[in-house]
Amino acid sequence: MTTQIELQHVNCKVGEKYLLRDITWQVQPGEKWIVFGENGSGKTTLLSLLAGYKRYSDGTIQLFGEPYQSEEVLRYRRRIGLVSTSFFNRILCRESVLSIVLSGQNGILGISEYISNQELLYAKKILEVFHIEKKKDMPFYLLSKGEQQSVLLARAFMGTPEILLLDEADSGLDYLARIRLTDFLAAFAAETKATLIAVTHYPNEIPDFFEHGLLMKNGKIYQKGLLEDVFRTEVFSDFLNTPVEIQKQKNGYQFISKGEVNRYAELWRT
């Protein structure tokens, strides 16, 4: 089986600062990965790089069994769907929902040429699936966080993603929207053979179909492997530099803090 994503000693440097350092990682087709890490650990940079929106400084990348070539970026983007409000919020603002979704067809950020009627109808159908069809003419910045996530999800599916990258797709969603997202991911995992890589800050809501985990810290990979090997008490206590206990539960892991309560309580005791 051809490795779908392969990174060997990849660095992403901006000025003197390393956003990613010495990233070595392999992903096989159809695998489901959870990426976990603190803010600023490089998760969004890693996903943007895989989706062809960011440049790397050193190392080698192979996508779909071929060496990464910058001339083929548009072709990669059509096969990789990226859902990242933290990335797209820096670029998109006043563009309309429908034009953003249509831009996913060709892997660019605008529209490349006149859209066919078929593509237009398909875009509207996708908007209906994600419950956002009534706001198709609205500027992106006027939408709520959850609605923006839905737009970016719809955009990812205008192409035919063989790899779906979700960057905190559950962040900022209300309860109903989170349920819909979970249902959507469950259907996606069951019905397709696509690879799924999702960044989350909610370990207690990790669906059971995720089987691999990647921990990131300060731009480096801290640990990677099967989820049950990565999400362990001793690994996370060291990773977070704070004592925690991890308990496996249905659809996720519960984190029990073992020290912070007393530290905060000191504020009121003194």
Partner: peptide, 24 residues
């Protein structure tokens, strides 16, 4: 130039500076 890429085809877009948006 809106997104980074080494290839112009993949990084440039038509843009309206008055509206501040990518615009076909």
């Amino acid at each position: 130039r809106v997104a980074f890429s080494e290839q112009d085809d993949a990084r440039v877009e038509l843009y309206c500076p008055r509206c501040g948006k990518i615009e076909f």
